[in-house]
Each structure stands twice: as C-alpha cells, then as structure tokens.
C-alpha cells in the first residue's frame, strides 16, 4: 500500500492530533458533574487548579485546588476509567478552602475541579496534564 503526498500529510496531522488531544472526553464526567451540581450552570473561574503540565509518572501526580469561600470542591480526571478522584468538603475551621493531594492519571488527559461557592453557584477549572511513559520498567 502506497501513500500519496496528501495521504501522508493527513496521516501525519492525525498522528499529531493524537498526541495533543487528551483521552476521549467521557460522558461519565458530565454525569458526575451534574450529580454534584444538581444540574445547575457551571461558570469558568472562581476556582484554582494547580497541576503539572507534564507528569513524570501517572501514578503520583501532585494537584492542588483552591476556591475562596467554597463549601466543597470536587476533583475529576476525565480520562480515567472512572472519573472521580476526590471531593473536599470544607468545615467551619478550614482556614482556606484549599487542599493538595496526589492522584493517579491513566494517561494524558484533563483534570477538572468543580467548586460549590459560598453563594451556592458552581465554578469550574480544568488543566491538561501530559503523562509520560518511563524509559525503563525497573
């Protein structure tokens, strides 16, 4: 099977997209978010999500979330077999509505934080984390 120049370019573009696009966004993510928000609208901004651009190993990826005044922040990994990661419910003695933890990512994908803010509205932030494959199995 031979490739024409055009086919070659298309193939190359497809391959490039494959490396850039995260795992297929999964319908389960929207379901989990809807369950958390009760179907309310989710605005961008109002919640900060810190995660590395490139993770050396998907087994232990440090992430932090913060949303001033939030009562809860839900963390999701859109490309994992199940998207749920953790939900932080902040009590009256939380000095800040912020938390850090370490999470598992099955591959390059979007990490999403949804915060329930003090006024009852919802905010969203997301970040793509590239997960590299190690050189040696060890």
């Amino acid at each position: 099977m031979d490739f024409t120049r055009r086919e070659t370019l298309a193939l190359g573009a497809g391959a490039a997209l494959m490396t850039i696009l995260p795992f297929r966004a999964n319908a389960a993510v929207e379901d989990v978010i809807a369950e958390f928000t009760g179907g309310a609208a989710v605005a961008d901004g109002g919640v900060d999500l810190t995660a590395p651009e490139i993770a050396e190993n998907g087994n232990t990826v440090p992430v932090s979330v913060e949303a001033a005044g939030a009562s809860a922040i839900m963390l999701l990994a859109a490309g994992n077999p199940t998207p749920g990661v953790a939900t932080f419910n902040f009590g009256p003695l939380a000095a800040t509505q912020a938390a850090s933890t370490r999470i598992r990512l099955a591959g390059t994908q979007d990490v999403i934080a949804i915060a329930k803010l003090a006024d009852g509205s919802f905010a969203r932030a997301s970040k793509t984390v590239k997960v590299t494959i190690g050189g040696c199995g060890g």
Binding site: T60, T82, A94, A99, R102, I103, R104
Partner: peptide, 22 residues
Amino acid sequence: QSVVDVTLEPAISTNPYFEFEA
C-alpha cells in the same frame, strides 16, 4: 468541629497524602 471531610476515589495515589490549612 470539622476542618475538612474528604471523599476518596480509587484515583487517589497509593499512600494518600493531604495538605490543607486549619
């Protein structure tokens, strides 16, 4: 009195770690 109450899913890494302020 509660500081934080966290629900963990299987995507939390081995040897779970949390950092927060009280």
